[in-house]
């Protein structure tokens, strides 16, 4: 029984620590750390998205920055047109910008879903290294498309002068914005938890471990994987919209393959397929980046060593190290 309770305990401590850190920072009047905690929450959310595809579905997407960046550009473009009072689309329907965060989220989810359906429908016909390469290729296409858009800043990116707003919440306040990100992270964790343990989750796990068996039972693996890939992209896209609003800036860097790699690193560091793995992974990544990065520019050397030891010695990542092997029953 004690063994069974270890992982939920580790998860609870992790999530509580992420909540207490910015609260303490506010109490100590250190606003910098509130922003840092928001970064952790947002990048963890991006990782939770990828983990659904990579961990549960076995789809190693090297192109999730595409969705992360698309979310960022939805936030940036909505803010730009709202600021200028100009129209995004004049015909056949007039669509302007928006200052509502809810609108930004809904549009982000819709755009991510449509793009993921298209990318997934092509990419999921391949497997293994080909899948990795084709998702990378799609993300690079979107990256270069963003660079070639002078209206939206091209290579220089786009500044968001005014963060979009929510009813009853002052999103301009760092702590309130953190709490919004934190709430979305918890919701995404809860949703993926339900999803992975549902009938759909059972089929998805079988699609990862033994697709031939799944087909023999009468469930075609392709639509199951495509659904999971799309949901995964929507979560990562939402994280991107928050990330752009946090930084007040979006640029093609959000769409770059380095960003895709980073999201994979969160998942691997935390523990592939472990529900709270991306939270641990993103937290560790940001801690290394800020504290070792504050001390030396070569902090990525340390990150490399940590990643290497995780892959070699702790296949379950940080969560696996703290909570033991994953349960299967």
């Amino acid at each position: 029984m004690a063994e069974r309770m270890r992982e939920p305990l580790v998860n609870a401590v992790l999530v509580l620590a992420l909540l207490i850190a910015p609260l303490t920072a506010v109490a100590l009047d250190e606003p910098f750390y509130v922003g840092l905690a928001s970064r952790v929450a947002i990048l963890a959310l991006a990782g939770v998205g990828l983990n659904l595809a990579l961990g549960s579905g076995g789809m190693v997407s090297f192109g999730h920055a595409a969705f992360f960046g698309l979310g960022g550009y939805v936030a940036g473009i909505a803010a730009l047109h709202a600021f200028e009072g100009s129209a995004f689309l004049a015909w056949p329907l007039e669509i302007g910008g928006s200052e509502s965060m809810i609108v930004v989220w809904v549009v982000t989810l819709a755009v991510s879903a449509v793009v993921a359906l298209a990318i997934g429908a092509v990419s999921l016909r391949t497997a293994g290294v080909y899948f990795i390469m084709i998702t990378l290729a799609f993300a690079q296409m979107i990256y270069y498309f963003a660079i070639s858009l002078p209206t939206y800043g091209g290579e220089d990116g786009l500044s968001i002068y005014l963060r979009s707003s929510l009813p009853f919440v002052d999103t301009g306040d760092p702590l309130s914005f953190f709490l919004v990100c934190y709430a979305l992270l918890l919701s995404a964790l809860f949703l993926t938890h339900r999803l992975v343990n549902s009938r759909f989750g059972a089929a998805l796990q079988c699609a990862r471990m033994n697709p031939e068996r799944l087909a023999t039972l009468g469930i075609a693996p392709f639509p199951v994987k495509l659904t999971a890939f799309t949901l995964s992209a929507m979560i990562t896209g939402l994280a991107g919209a928050l990330f752009a609003e946090l930084n007040g800036f979006v640029s093609p860097a959000m769409l770059s393959w380095q960003r895709s790699g980073e999201i994979i690193v969160f998942v691997i560091l935390g523990g592939v397929g472990r529900l709270f793995g991306p939270v641990a992974g993103a937290a560790l990544f940001i801690l290394l980046e800020s504290f070792i990065g504050g001390w030396t520019d070569r902090w990525q050397l340390v990150l490399g060593l940590v990643l290497l030891s995780v892959v070699l010695f702790a296949r379950g990542g940080v969560i696996g190290l703290l909570a033991g092997r994953a349960r299967h029953d």
Partner: peptide, 23 residues
């Protein structure tokens, strides 16, 4: 048991069912 449950599920509802815990 879960192997066989997956087979029963495949016959009765397929992959779809996103919320209720299957176990």
């Amino acid at each position: 048991l879960r192997n066989v449950m997956l087979a029963v599920q495949a016959r009765s509802s397929g992959a779809f069912g996103f919320w209720a815990p299957v176990r």
